[in-house]
Simulated assay, not measured.
Amino acid sequence: MLFVAASILLAFLVTLGSARWLTLHATARSASSQVMLAALSFPLVALALFVVAVCVALISMSRGPDLPGQSEGMPIFAAVFFLIYAWAIGAIVGLPTAIVAVRMFRPG
């Protein structure tokens, strides 16, 4: 349960920070563009972590498995489920947060 709460909080904070940055530095963009970019921030962070996790799994397994029958498939399989979970959290938490944050931070 702690993992779910931490990931929801992280999605909220990443989206909030992204909305703040976009409203300060990308002022020429429309509000809907800022909302979509802010909402995509957490899924993009999750995608970057996924790429790092897959690379680490492949590199560590290229040295040879620690245990007989161990392969790089299971860590990558777990990372895929983490990625899907992060995208769902990003959609459920990130989109409403982005809408409210852009409205709150946008001048005028």
Results as ranks from 00 to 15, higher is better:
Ala98Thr: 04
Met61Arg: 11
Gly90Ala: 12
Thr23Gln: 02
Ala31Trp: 07
Ala28Gly: 01
Val80Pro: 12
Gly94Cys: 08
Ala101Tyr: 02
Ala28Asp: 08
Arg63Ala: 09
Ser33Gln: 14
Ala19Lys: 00
Ala57His: 03
Ser7Val: 00
Tyr85Lys: 12
Leu40Lys: 00
Cys55Leu: 13
Arg106Leu: 03
Met1Trp: 07
Val93Thr: 09
Ser60Asn: 09
Phe3Gly: 04
His25Arg: 12
Val93Tyr: 10
Ile84Asp: 07
Ala91Asp: 11
Leu44Ser: 03
Ala11Gly: 05
Leu13Ser: 02
Ser18Lys: 04
Ala78Trp: 14
Pro65Met: 13
Ala5Gln: 11
Leu22His: 00
His25Trp: 07
Met104Arg: 12
Gly108Lys: 13
Ser60Trp: 06
Phe81Tyr: 13
Phe81Glu: 12
Ala57Arg: 01
Ile89Tyr: 11
Ile89Lys: 11
Met1Pro: 01
Phe105Cys: 03
Ala38Gln: 05
Phe105Ala: 08
Gly17Gln: 08
Ser71Ala: 13
Ser41Tyr: 00
Leu10Arg: 00
Pro96Ala: 14
Ala86Gln: 08
Met61Val: 04
Leu49Cys: 10
Gly94Val: 02
Ala46Asp: 05
Pro65His: 09
Val80Thr: 13
Arg29Ala: 09
Pro107Ser: 04
Ser7Phe: 07
Ala48Thr: 09
Ile99Val: 13
Ala79Glu: 10
Ile99Gly: 04
Pro96Arg: 08
Ala11Leu: 02
Pro96Trp: 06
Val100Phe: 11
Gly94Met: 08
Leu2Glu: 07
Met74Ile: 14
Ser71Glu: 15
Leu49Glu: 07
Arg20Ala: 07
Val56Phe: 15
Ala78Lys: 14
Ala26Asp: 03
Ser62Phe: 05
Ser71Cys: 09
Asp66Thr: 15
Ile92Thr: 12
Met104Asp: 02
Leu67Phe: 14
Arg29Cys: 05
Ile84Met: 09
Ile99Gln: 12
Val100Ser: 03
Leu16Tyr: 10
Ala79Ser: 15
Ala79Tyr: 06
Gly64Thr: 10
Leu58Glu: 15
Gly108Asp: 02
Ala86Asn: 09
Leu37Gln: 04
Leu47Val: 06
Ala39Cys: 02
Leu2Thr: 08
Trp21Gln: 01
Asp66Ile: 15
Leu40Ala: 03
Phe105His: 03
Met61Gln: 15
Leu83Gln: 11
Val56Thr: 08
Trp21Asn: 01
Val4Cys: 14
Leu16Asp: 06
Ala48His: 03
Ala28Met: 11
Trp87Glu: 09
Phe3Gln: 11
Arg103Cys: 00
Leu49Val: 01
Trp87Leu: 14
Ala6Glu: 14
Gly64Pro: 02
Ala88Ser: 07
Leu9Thr: 01
Ile92Tyr: 04
Met61Leu: 14
Ala19Met: 10
Gln34Ile: 00
Ala31Gly: 00
Ala88Met: 11
Ser18Pro: 00
His25Lys: 10
Gly94Trp: 06
Ser71Val: 06
Ala78Glu: 15
Ala38Gly: 00
Ser33Ala: 11
Ser41His: 01
Gln70Arg: 06
Tyr85Gln: 12
Ser62Met: 13
Val35Leu: 03
Ala26Trp: 01
Pro65Arg: 06
Phe82Ala: 14
Tyr85Ala: 12
Leu10Tyr: 02
Ala98Lys: 02
Arg20His: 05
Phe3Tyr: 04
Phe12Gln: 11
Ala101Ser: 15
Ala78Asn: 13
Met36Trp: 12
Ile92Asn: 10
Val4Asp: 10
